[in-house]
Design a protein around this nucleic acid. Sequence first.
DNA 1: GCTTTAGTACTTACATCGTAAGGCAATTCG
DNA 2: CGAATTGCCTTACGATGTAAGTACTAAAGC
Lengths: 243, 243
Amino acid sequence: MARAETAPRVPLTRERILHTAIELAGARGIGGLTMRGLGEALGVEAMSLYNHVANKADLLNGMVDAVFAEIELPSHSDDWRTAIRKRSVSFHAMLTRHPWVSGLRDSATQPGTSTLRHHDRVIGTFRNGGFSVALAAHAFSLIDSYIYGFALQEAALPLATEEQSAEVAEAMMAQLAVAEFPYLAELTVEHVMQPGYQYSNEFTIGLDLVLDSLEAALAKEQGASGVDDSGAGRAHSMPIHSE
Amino acid sequence: MARAETAPRVPLTRERILHTAIELAGARGIGGLTMRGLGEALGVEAMSLYNHVANKADLLNGMVDAVFAEIELPSHSDDWRTAIRKRSVSFHAMLTRHPWVSGLRDSATQPGTSTLRHHDRVIGTFRNGGFSVALAAHAFSLIDSYIYGFALQEAALPLATEEQSAEVAEAMMAQLAVAEFPYLAELTVEHVMQPGYQYSNEFTIGLDLVLDSLEAALAKEQGASGVDDSGAGRAHSMPIHSE
DNA sequence: GCTTTAGTACTTACATCGTAAGGCAATTCG
DNA sequence: CGAATTGCCTTACGATGTAAGTACTAAAGC
């Protein structure tokens, strides 16, 4: 048959499926990603995909793990604050590229190796920076909650470009009873509708505030360990509000 | 007719629909909430619901707005920090009661009146506490991102009870190559597997760190306005990292 | 070379979903 | 009492994830 020369006949792979799925999710949104549509994009019937992924949940897990590999790992040569800051900005950029990730909660239950490696390096960066195990856990929880939550709001509010912001703000003001929500109105007019406003700029502002507080908590913890060893010793206690 | 006495014959209402939908989402998860199932729970056919809600998206929006009304509004009599802290704890408690809320990004695009009132009061609390418009916006973004993000991770990781935590941690350790992810292993063993650990306890720790950083930012902003009026005057600039 | 075997892709089919269209009954208004 | 309006129900359609069974393709053994 002529199949050998006419069709390239690239065999289906899990990697190829994941890549195309990520592309498709980007183009049509995660809701527009269907097994049939994905099959079509790969020149294949929907059911053929099931030879390489267990089910759609497995596909989504794989997609999340694949994009986690795009995040810049914290560098060993940087001090903890710059290392964490860099990877957080990179993390945020990834979530901006792939807005559907923050919506997929299930994937956290079954983390892939990329995800685990990432988490391990982040925790390690804190530990090497002098954080106790407990404080490293707090820091990890705080930072990642912020990053995820910010991405969630970013995905919801369509304030990506300046025009979009203006549009949304105006629509909001139009239907908004200004008298009933005066502070919301003030913030919209005097902040959101200012020229050059983009919600995504808020990210690093909040991030730096978070890093400030972690730096202070670390200083407090290290100071406390000099006076009283209970802070560093009972690693699973709460060293921040020990009073 | 006998209808008055035999059958209670409570007529369908948007409120009754929303309440039952919230219950159902709590019992079966948001994925288990279907129009047919909801109708059945109300003793009614699925299509009858469409006389009171436009479509499923409208239903979900209504549900989100209804549970937003459960959040304790920041009190005017408290100072900003305690007021925000109280409402944040209340917010978090609501998201724990209704874990599906954080997953519904779409609802932020079409906020209901409860949601708007809530946001207005939060921003107002910051403003009355002395925050500039810009800093209030940053604070609002930071705090709500953290709360949402934390709830997202809480919903994903099933670490609600102590037993669950232990279970998950052990399962993780079992399949985890300890040598490959040493820091993750350390954190799991020395922190998560400690007696009495519950991930939800991390919430107030991170929250207090965030509030610390906002307090510092406010002090910095107010200190700067004494030396130089540009901080308070140009409200849409970035008063935190002005250097 | 031919035959066997395993794995990959295709076909068909089903349960379940949101919801469009139209019918019927009960309640409200004249 | 009759007319109209509202609210609920019936039926039906297209789309989705995926179970089950079939056919083809490519490597392994003789």
